[in-house]
Nucleic acid binder design. Structure first.
Length: 487
RNA sequence: GGCCCUAUCGUCUAUCGGCUAGGACGCUGCCCUUUCAAGGCAGAAAGAGGGGUUCGACUCCCCUUAGGGCCA
């Protein structure tokens, strides 16, 4: 049984890179009918926050990355996830006993030791090492303290951290599914802290304990953790545990080649939501950052993605995030929606644009007419607003189209014509207007352009005749009148 | 500074020693068309550099260069 986890630190929103890692884990689990676990690594009490936890959960929910397992909730402690019929995530801060237990084991077996060096002392050592051009690693001052020395430190009231005793010789090899075998010399690994003086575990330790206890089979995570892996492997060995398989995903970079960060624009998943992206589009795009099929296909339905996802298709080199391609992809997903779905997805944006209470049927039709143009849901209100609000006449449209020679006369005739057309359906209108043009020796465009500007205020828009039908006779006549007054 | 990773069009990528180097975004042109789109067709655009290995290297090895990561 395949078991994977996504293990974010709640020190900020869920960013694009984290979302991609979560997605790959989720896809891998679904592909192999495995289990996907969410583990919140909140042992850094200073930087962790509840707001971050909420943002991460909301982001995962939006992306449809639900997890399959979690701790039993204590009675009375209900979270949102419970109401959603989901599991709670695991929180490392609620598992401190377990880490302590294994620190004790390592201490007992002499595979770890207490270190009484103060931050100031460590700092001084580091500076000295740098001055002497030695690698700034822990020198092992407390590696072999005698019992007497220990007691001495204790009576002085010094608090100890616990360090893992690294072997000095040989090398540790990481067998990475994506990168192959990567070797690290043990003498360059340092005796890293596994338990802080305050008693909490460090990242590299808690991670190992949890991955083991949660029976994780594949650790799929960002490239930045590759260098931590040999230290973690030593902990597995020290505790007598079999390590999982590792797969390190390449990083996601900004357009300038540096690690993707805030200065490159939106990096928070939720920002993409508010910018009008569809979660399925973001998922599809993210899947293609660092992964591809042999035929380089671009668009995948959710189920297809699960069926095709494969760690072997993962890229070793970092990928640059391309907002333009994401937008294109969002457009293709928007065009796949029915107009009902598009209206539903755009509802929050329509609402904040003051179009929350317009009649449903005309809204559906207006949105349907504009759908092919939409790349972001945020554009929907702007594209349909003139159907429901008074037209705002663009200055250049007035000058170039309404005030064009002959336009005034055409509008006058058209207004008279539209007053008495028997029906006001697209096909009637098209027949009437084209007939008018033919009868007056006009090219259809000569009439169509001024009418478009007159009824919508702009030069761009959907098919004119469909647009007129949706607007209805009353509004059309009224607006042509308004436009005439501008000429 | 030490260690590690990476290197194909501007970007995402295909290629697992035979390549006229394929696809997608973006860009340009044409077609369709009442505008804007969408769609269709066409085009420009790539193997970082240097050594090897091989009948043959984008593909394998080494070095250099560049970018990135981790440790502080």
């Amino acid at each position: 049984m395949i078991r994977v986890r996504f293990a974010p630190s709640p020190t900020g929103y869920l960013h694009i890179g984290g979302a991609r890692t979560a997605l790959f884990n989720h896809l891998f689990a679904r592909r192999h009918q495995g289990v996907f676990i969410l583990r919140i690594e909140d042992t850094d009490e200073v930087r962790s926050s509840h707001e971050s936890v909420d943002a991460i959960l909301e982001s995962l929910a939006w992306l449809g990355l639900e997890w399959d397992e979690g701790p039993r909730l204590e009675p009375g402690r209900s979270g949102d996830w419970q109401e959603r019929g989901n599991f709670a995530p695991y929180f490392q801060m609620r598992r401190l006993e377990r880490y302590r237990q294994y620190v004790e084991q390592l201490l007992r077996e002499g595979k770890a030791y207490r270190c009484y060096c103060t931050p100031e002392e460590l700092d001084a050592m580091r500076r000295r090492a740098q001055l002497e051009k030695r690698p700034p690693r822990y020198e092992g001052r407390c590696r072999s303290l005698t019992e007497a020395q220990r007691r001495d430190h204790e009576t002085q009231g010094r608090r100890a951290s616990v360090r893992f005793r690294m072997p000095d010789e040989d090398a540790t090899a990481v067998e990475d599914v994506i990168r192959g075998r990567v070797e690290f010399e043990n003498r360059l690994l340092q005796d890293f802290v596994i338990q802080k003086t305050a008693g909490g575990p460090t990242y590299n330790f808690a991670c190992v304990v949890d991955d083991h206890l949660m029976e994780i089979t594949h650790v799929i995570r960002g490239d930045e953790h590759l260098s931590n892996t040999p230290s973690q492997l030593q902990v597995y060995a020290g505790l007598g545990w079999k390590p999982p398989q590792f797969a390190h995903l390449s990083m996601i970079l900004g357009p300038d080649g540096a690690k993707l960060s805030k200065r490159h624009g939106a990096t928070s998943v939720l920002e993409y939501k508010t910018q009008g992206f569809l979660p399925q589009a973001l998922r599809n795009y993210l899947a293609l950052l660092g992964w591809a099929t042999p035929d380089s296909r671009q668009l995948f339905e959710a189920a297809e993605l699960i069926g095709k996802f494969d760690l072997k298709g993962c890229q070793k080199n970092p990928a640059t995030f391309d907002p333009q391609k994401l937008q294109w992809m969002n457009g293709t997903y928007i065009r796949k929606l029915t107009r009902e779905e598009l209206v539903r997805e755009s509802a929050p944006f329509l609402e904040s644009a003051g179009l929350g209470r317009v009649p449903r049927e005309p809204l559906l039709r207006a949105v349907g007419l504009e759908a092919e143009k939409v790349k972001l849901l945020t554009e929907v209100p702007r594209l349909v607003d003139f159907f429901f609000k008074d037209a705002v006449y663009e200055q250049k449209a007035v000058e170039k189209v309404l005030r064009a020679p002959g336009a005034a006369k055409i509008l006058e005739d058209i207004r008279a014509l539209l007053q008495k057309t028997p029906g006001f359906l697209e096909k009637d209108l098209e027949a009437a207007i084209r007939g008018f043009c033919a009868g007056n020796n006009l090219k259809p465009a000569q009439a169509i352009h001024p009418i478009r500007v007159a009824v919508s205020g702009r030069t761009e828009g959907p098919s004119l005749f469909a647009m007129l039908e949706v607007l209805g006779r009353e509004k059309v006549l009224e607006r042509i009148g308004a436009a005439q007054r501008l000429i």
